[in-house]
């Protein structure tokens, strides 16, 4: 009995040691690469900025002014613009990626599936800047498809037109990532379930709504979260396609840090952005978990 207990304890210690060794590299990377800059950012955000200087000066006074000055309509508008344009782009991306992933997994031959996979990976790896300028040259104010959009009543100079072009740029980058994320889930759904539903008389659309969609819901939530995170943190896409008129949080953060050298204000905005993004992602994750439990 004592021997068995000792053996269990030895296994438990060995397990814990293995776990610690396995996790150590990730913990170290997170601690040095993420946590320490984050702490640094938090400290910087509480320092007073002297206009005309680069960042906070040595022994700068502690203040919450950098957070206080964010409580205004203009900042709320930038936050709102970031999340609504990013959110729309993430949802449109799922609407395109979901059927595309299904088509690739269920309708293409293995050879064509490999080709499609390679094509999607190429799209993921290709430069965002090149893709963004491709959209600009196609749909921008002097783009070749501009007349098409003008015929549906969208003025090239209107804010609506610019918003649509920014969403198009984000969707362009989201689709390959979302499709790749969803393909794994699609592959794990047993195709015989759909066959069974349809052989029992369910129309195709209903079979998909009651089998494919619920079974791929976890992947769909993950894909939406990945897409949303990408969209709200986009920098180049709103900068180039937004013609300087669409401001995302990332653009404001860049301006604060890089152009006017107000590090404390940039740090405060970064932390507010991080907290907001974490809150939105947590709400979506918790809502999904709650729905799964029901």
């Amino acid at each position: 009995m004592t021997n068995a207990r000792q053996q269990t304890a030895a296994i438990s210690i060995s397990d814990r040691r293995d776990r610690a060794i396995t996790l150590a590299p990730a913990v170290l990377v997170l601690a040095f690469g993420f946590l320490s800059p984050l702490i640094n950012l938090a400290i910087e955000s509480l320092k007073e900025f002297t206009p005309g200087r680069v960042g906070s000066v040595e022994n700068a006074a502690t203040t919450v002014q950098n957070y206080h000055e964010l409580a205004n309509q203009a900042f709320a508008n930038v936050l709102l613009t970031t999340f609504w344009i990013g959110g729309v782009a993430a949802l449109v991306g799922q609407l395109v990626a979901f059927p595309l992933a299904y088509f690739i997994v269920r309708r293409l031959s293995p050879r064509m599936r490999t080709l499609a996979l390679g094509f999607l990976i190429t799209l993921v790896l290709s430069s965002v800047l090149i893709k963004t300028y491709a959209i600009e040259l196609t749909f921008g104010s002097v783009g070749i498809l501009r007349p098409l959009l003008l015929t549906v009543g969208l003025s090239a100079n209107s804010r609506e037109y610019i918003n649509i072009v920014v969403i198009a740029g984000l969707v362009h980058s989201i689709i390959p990532v979302a499709t790749l994320t969803l393909m794994g889930a699609m592959q794990s759904i047993d195709p015989r379930l759909l066959d069974a539903a349809q052989s029992l008389g369910a129309p195709g659309w209903k079979a998909h709504l009651s089998i494919t969609l619920p079974l791929s819901l976890p992947a769909l939530v993950s894909s939406t979260l990945i897409s949303l995170t990408f969209a709200i943190s986009a920098f180049v896409i709103p900068m180039v396609l937004g013609r300087g008129r669409v401001l995302f949080m990332s653009n404001v953060i860049y301006t604060r840090f890089s152009d006017i050298a107000n590090y404390p204000s940039g740090a405060a905005i970064s932390l507010v952005m991080l907290a907001t993004a974490l809150a939105v992602i947590s709400v979506i994750t918790l809502a999904h978990a709650w729905k799964s439990r029901r």
Binding site: E69, A74, R245
Partner: peptide
């Protein structure tokens, strides 16, 4: 230029608050 330099932070914020929403 010393005045211009010291006002960059305030002017940039003024742009975000008063001008950017109108564009």
């Amino acid at each position: 230029y010393n005045v211009v330099l010291e006002q960059q932070d305030a002017w940039s914020k003024r742009w975000e608050q008063d001008i950017a929403p109108l564009l």
